[in-house]
Design a protein around this nucleic acid. Structure first.
Length: 291
DNA sequence: AGTGTATCCTGCAGGC
DNA sequence: TGCCTGCAGGATACAC
């Protein structure tokens, strides 16, 4: 579900309420979201202070006091919701009243909750449970982060480097864009959107996209992601902001989900093809298979 | 090496 | 109404 713009929107919404908050208690409701025993997970987190909230690709990163960090990948349907504290703090034994708030926000599948005292509750909710929450030592996270590709919105990714990387693979360009080791943060929606904007057929081999086309594609990726961030992401069904709001980019999607509709540019019929186990949406006239 | 397929899981939409 | 099939934003373990 959540791609770079959705994750970016979420961390922006978490930064203020979570920075400096203390994780008083962790409750694991669905253990298969973890990669370690829940007792160990809880022990590593309880008592720690959240120092900062960041994003790397599609991962949410909470840096904690000590040398650990909490890394959250939302999978397809994960949500990370901030539930504010109750207006009138109640006597001990309370859970922060988060269940009621969660239901009010439509969170029906609580996975892990973090009780933050005066800062309220952070709730991870996930229908399909493809998401993962991990507590990692800083150095382990660094190693993993290094294995991810560059940030598409970062300065480091120059058109030259991008073009160079493309030239090393003949996998379909849409699949290439989904590979987090190549570029971090692009998913199926924005890969299709960027390819439509750049007028590149999604099945073309990556190494056939060279020179000026690579430059155009990188620009299209950046513009698409920035537009989507501005709209707070795309809600198809499950994605919510940290405050439970909807993303507003869906009506602006040009290609994704539009098979059978007229192309917004040439009015020809948009198509859907499946490869790599995912749908690709494109206009056969604007995005010819052979350039 | 690099590419394609199946799998984890639940819910919803559409066809009959 | 209900049953069935297909499909969904992601990531990974495999086989070739």
């Amino acid at each position: 579900m959540p791609e770079l713009p959705e994750v970016e929107t979420i961390i922006r919404g978490l930064r203020a309420p979570l920075s400096g908050a203390v994780i008083e208690k962790v409750k694991v409701h669905k253990r298969d979201l973890l990669r370690e025993p829940s007792t160990r997970f809880r022990a590593r987190l309880e008592g720690k202070t959240i120092q900062s909230v960041d994003r790397r690709g599609k991962n949410i990163l909470l840096t904690l006091s000590g040398s650990d960090c909490l890394v959250v990948n939302l999978g397809m349907t994960g949500r990370l919701l901030h539930l504010g504290p109750p207006p009138r703090p109640r006597p001990s034994g309370e859970d922060g009243g988060w269940r009621q708030k969660a239901r009010a926000l439509g969170a029906r599948h609580p996975g892990v909750s973090f009780l933050l005292g005066r800062a309220g509750t952070l709730l991870y909710d996930d229908v399909r449970r493809f998401g993962v929450l991990r507590c990692l030592a800083a150095e382990d996270w660094r190693a993993e982060s290094d294995s991810l590709g560059p940030e598409p919105l970062g300065r480091g990714l120059t058109p030259e480097l991008f073009s160079e990387a493309l030239s090393r693979s003949r996998t379909p360009i849409r699949n290439w864009l989904l590979d987090q080791r190549k570029v971090a943060g692009v998913g199926n929606i924005y890969a299709n959107e960027a390819l439509f904007r750049a007028k590149i057929h999604p099945a073309r081999p990556a190494n056939s996209v060279g020179g000026s086309e690579a430059r155009v594609l990188l620009e299209a990726i950046r513009n698409t992601l920035e537009d989507a961030i501005r709209a707070r992401g795309t809600t198809l069904r499950d994605y919510r902001t940290a405050q439970g709001g909807f993303g507003g980019y869906r009506p602006m999607l040009l290609a994704y989900g539009r098979a059978g509709e007229p192309c917004p540019v040439c009015k020809g019929l948009m198509e859907r093809v499946v490869f790599g186990n995912r749908s690709a949406f494109f206009c056969p006239r604007c995005q010819p298979e052979s350039p």
